[in-house]
Amino acid sequence: MITAVQKPFDEISEMVKGHDKLLILGCGSCVTVCMAGGEKEVGILASTLRLFNKQNNISMEIIEDTIERQCDREFFDAVKDKILRADAVLSMACGAGVQFCAEVFEGKRVLPALNTRFYGATEQQGIWSECCAGCGSCVLDKFGGICPIARCSKSLLNGPCGGSQEGKCEVDPENIDCGWQLIYDRMKSLGLLHKLEENEPINDWSTGRDGGPGKIIREDMVL
């Protein structure tokens, strides 16, 4: 899933200043799972903003809603009227959802309530960790299902850097496991250690950020 965290409240209150009618719009997909921008979080942010406005004598009508996804056009139909009536939309979706909402409702001010972080998995309830860097040329088959691009702090493809101690990364030994230690242990358990002796060519970044904004076209699906 795409993970995100809420922006600091000060930043949000400053951002929405001057709008008389604000729609706080949640997203029912990734950011609901990572508890940053779902229905509950919309309610909490709306309540906090209303209390803040009351304390500061700010007149602002705040409406709340959450749709299934903000990165698909059809889900906006259910809130179209609310969006059109609002002065601005405070989107609690990831960066993609915020941009898509602004694209669908041209001329409408759409503001981000979240900082989008990374593609990750739920490590345990309340803890999410990065797993994929979205580089566009997946090498997971060669590393036992652990991505050296995303999980090695230096994105090394041919073994550890030498800064790893007791399975921990020198970048942050308290919190980051050495990605290459994880790869070594996994490959060992799979009986595939010999595979790591093969040289891995440099990554093809043309499919990642290097190639400009990404686009996928499935000719068989395009109408």
Binding site: F9, D10, S47, T48, L51, F52, Q55
Partner: peptide
């Protein structure tokens, strides 16, 4: 935390 942010 939310109350602090709201100035309450």
């Amino acid at each position: 935390k939310a109350l602090r942010e709201a100035g309450i």
